[in-house]
Design a protein around this nucleic acid. Sequence first.
DNA 1: TTGTACGCGTTATCAT
DNA 2: ATGATAACGCGTACAA
Lengths: 375, 375
Amino acid sequence: MDGKKERAGRSSGSSGGQRVTLTRIAEELGVSAMTVSNAYSRPDQLSEALRERIFETAGKLGYHGPDPVGRSLRRQRTDVVGVLYSNPLSYAFDDPAAVSFLGGLSSVTEEADLGLLLVSATGGGLVAGRDPRAAAQAAVDGFVIYSMSEEEPLLKGALDRRLPAVVVDQPLKDGVPFVGVDDEAAARMAAKHLLDLEHERFAIVSFALSADGREGIADLDRQEQAAFRVSHLRLRGYRAALEDAGLPWSKVPVYECPGSSKELGRRAAEGLLSSQRRSTAVLVSSDQLALGVIEWATGHGLSVPEDISVVGFDDIPVAASANPPLTTVHQDHAEKGLLAGRMLIAQLRDKGLPGTGSLPTDLVVRGSTSVPRKP
Amino acid sequence: MDGKKERAGRSSGSSGGQRVTLTRIAEELGVSAMTVSNAYSRPDQLSEALRERIFETAGKLGYHGPDPVGRSLRRQRTDVVGVLYSNPLSYAFDDPAAVSFLGGLSSVTEEADLGLLLVSATGGGLVAGRDPRAAAQAAVDGFVIYSMSEEEPLLKGALDRRLPAVVVDQPLKDGVPFVGVDDEAAARMAAKHLLDLEHERFAIVSFALSADGREGIADLDRQEQAAFRVSHLRLRGYRAALEDAGLPWSKVPVYECPGSSKELGRRAAEGLLSSQRRSTAVLVSSDQLALGVIEWATGHGLSVPEDISVVGFDDIPVAASANPPLTTVHQDHAEKGLLAGRMLIAQLRDKGLPGTGSLPTDLVVRGSTSVPRKP
DNA sequence: TTGTACGCGTTATCAT
DNA sequence: ATGATAACGCGTACAA
């Protein structure tokens, strides 16, 4: 015998410690294992009477249905979808956009009777010599890759397995179906709104351009080399709009935050708005950051939008009820989850490779923007 | 040969359609399968040179490490923790308390290198004849059971498997470690706060007492028979405090909501506060409901707290920044997740059965409560 | 350091 | 309606 580990379990009732399997039940009744299997998985292949007897002894022996792992091995599928998220998984639950996305995704997987396995990008902490393959070794039928960095080792590990997959937002990968929005056009729209209000002094708050955790003003070089597609495109959009209006981009400070939270937003505001001749318009590439910017501003005697207009990006649920309500670029994160889920399931069902799913965005004008105060 | 399904895959490079396995690599190199296995799982058992050669041909043939399912079967563990949530899984992502909880839980599982599998209570919609066992058939090493109804069939299915498990909030089950707070004392504290402010006309908004989806005023009978432990205890706490103050419970209307959302809160408020001689104090058993109550009130010309004081329960993140900021019972949901995770992992590691983990609560007084307006 | 033998628990196929 | 056989892909125990 192999594993001799003593089961701690309160040996409840009839059977001792030994693991109960299909075969065990079969022996007990003098039928074949196949028949027991059928009792659970294909009821039409048995007489009702036998099926009953099987369930009965199963109950008596403490057997509660086919072991999922054995079944998965044999059937060559797990009925589980893996979700890959950039950075510590627990961050996802602090990010309202990610939460909405997962909500949408889960409603599809749920309906399709698939489990949702959240796979950590950084399990095991920083254990030296940790195999980057490890995290990709999940027992899943396919992956939803949510907004990952191009360079994330986990990504390669997952894609190498050549399972069905869908990438959301980033990165773009040949042959892998993709879901996203037109980030550049959306950002352009946001900037255009402020330009229409006749703002002239702009500042930008961006989330991470690369995964190196840098924080602070990002120069042109760094902007160009952004590893995060989404950050890059949003910057491009802002830039295009400003340049179209004849404003020199080189004079627009871009503050890079290594994440997306209120706290980082406050710090960005501090870095950007402390100066004498401060900006009147701030374009922010996420709502959480934008809310942080607003907090810092109001906390320092500046009023929004009278002194400073702020535009966010994402339209997370709290944006509407913030104070002031946040003007922002709306995108439907839950819908994105739905779509990604459907595209993955299509592949699982052998419906072939879906192409690219693009979702609309629109600008939601609320209370955080207005014409600049006259000088 | 068994499965004849044609792989859709773009047959990338060297190898054809055939699945690549450990054995295949072994044959290719003329070594034993065991050695290949060791190359991945126990590097110290090989010469570095051989290991390199193995990885090389593995790469060439498109093999990317041991199959997780085969591995799980053999090792008798999956390194995955299952999370059971009451009702459609997607609701969890709409519930800030659940989201915080999952955040805490995920940070522990992540650190322990465990995957987190979200298991749906109601997969496959309402397909008739659906096996309630199905959802419990996840390939996991243990379960975190989050706030489920006592009667949920899924619960029985999961517990029957006798895997390590931890129950959070409800239901209480013999022999299953439990994490929660003292809901009754906390509710009492909330009621006491309003009594101290000299309120006398109370109304209660509770979330579900049973899983039958009923909505509306719940009579004493229904209150007593609540299937949800948490709802029951909170009501008991409110009641005890009011009765201690000499207020007759029978005159206090209890509105039951079949869930926890702003929308349901608005409906409850409508049901409770439309009357002539309305209450001045509303005790609500969740923050989301409380925020809905406030919205309804302010939307109908009542001001909070001047006309009506409202106390919530949970202290979800938005409570502090709501308008007015919500007075509520604070509990640390993320910490609850951490604790539940740790208690489950302790079992997985054979550290024996942990007992009960109890977390503190405290009342956070903010702007939604004050003395009642003089009549 | 490497190889042999076997079993983990299930189910598809084909036969009866 | 039921059974025999043979994998599914891997890893433990032990021998060499």
